[in-house]
Design a protein around this nucleic acid. Structure first.
Lengths: 211, 211
DNA sequence: GTCTATAAGCAGATAGAC
DNA sequence: GTCTATCTGCTTATAGAC
């Protein structure tokens, strides 16, 4: 019950840590409680003392992963710089493309999709992220509907980029998708004649490279 | 070895059909040979006669799914209409968003990623599709590198859109991502005055579902 | 070629000692 | 709270009759 006891690494914390790692590596379904047990170093009974079922363990571990990811994302998207710049910074953030998105991958995990409590945690992550992205895009002067659509596109680029990278075993596939999207996003008017751009072209600051 | 015997539905064909359906619904890993057996209506021994291991069954079923999806995709992308129009037609094709991409989902399927033979089938699908999309985008006058990046972006939109739809349980999430991307893709000069759309919205012919 | 019967092993979960 | 020992059911696969 007592969460966040920082004094020592409780069996509970070790279990959640191990579960997060294994879930990220191989998904929830294929990860057995026994494997979490072995990785954490605690005994069989301890697991079932803290987490009566695999569901309980999964909710705790996936919840922790979502919290961490959301914190990082919102920090990137919430700075002082111009909105487009923050969006591009989010898109271009270094990512372990071949590993896939720890959370996005769960949408293909039958054990997660079949479990309402677990699914809700995943849903909350994406709803929150889409809301924030929409907000950022509204700052660029886009109407509400267009901002929402473009937010979906931006997040789809990241999630789809992960899929492409894993499918082709090419870590650059995610980076390529991001480049293609950012190219469109920051494009000046094709300008055969008229100059005025839709999106105020930002001076692309030298961003961190994609891994 | 004799494939496509159209005279009668062999036990082999029924097994492959059942496997394709179950793999699409719940993935390869979570689908047991016994479940395929039950769905196909054949006996235990028949399965292991035609497919000595689950791997063999999976290669046959996933291979068939890839062939079908590739055929549909290449038909959409290979018409006579202008390149951008064909690309948009591909992006806007009706899809069962909540079901996810039958092939893209396999990139999160541990049973697939751990099996080189199976993974290769998935890789081939995406490599082929990316090549074709790149070709189409080159027709629009884009330089090679930019065409390749934009092709990655386009395919990522579809794959990521599926992820968003499943994550949020919102079938419109995929459509929103496509709208956001097509909006950028076909954006005319900001047009404070002129309304003319670049791409004449094609009359979506009622398409088959999925990729 | 197709069937029924069955083996070996791992899954999720429980019992109960310390 | 943590441990070891154990149960049931399902998994992949094999054996061998028809």
């Amino acid at each position: 019950m007592v969460r966040g006891m920082s004094t020592t690494t409780s069996a509970r914390d070790r279990l959640v840590d191990a579960a997060q790692d294994l879930f990220a590596a191989q998904g929830v379904g294929p990860t057995s409680p026994r494997a979490v047990l072995a990785a954490s170093g605690v005994g069989q009974g301890s697991l079932y003392h803290h987490f009566p079922t695999k569901h309980d363990l999964a909710v705790a571990a996936v919840g922790a992963t979502v919290d961490e990811a959301l914190t990082r994302a919102l920090r990137t998207l919430g700075g002082d710089s111009p909105a487009v710049e923050r969006l591009v910074a989010y898109l271009e953030r270094p990512r372990d493309a071949l590993a896939g998105c720890k959370i996005g991958r769960l949408t293909s995990d039958q054990a997660v999709m079949d479990d309402d409590g677990l699914h809700d945690v995943v849903t909350a992550y994406f709803v929150r992220l889409l809301g924030t992205l929409t907000q950022v895009l509204r700052e660029t002067g886009l109407p509400d509907d267009a901002a929402r659509d473009r937010a979906h596109a931006a997040l789809a680029i990241v999630q789809g980029g992960y899929v492409l990278a894993r499918a082709t075993r090419d870590p650059d596939a995610l980076a390529a998708a991001v480049r293609g999207f950012v190219g469109l996003l920051t494009q000046t008017v094709p300008a055969p004649t008229v100059p005025a751009p839709t999106v105020p072209t930002p001076n692309l600051p030298t961003q961190e490279e994609n891994q």
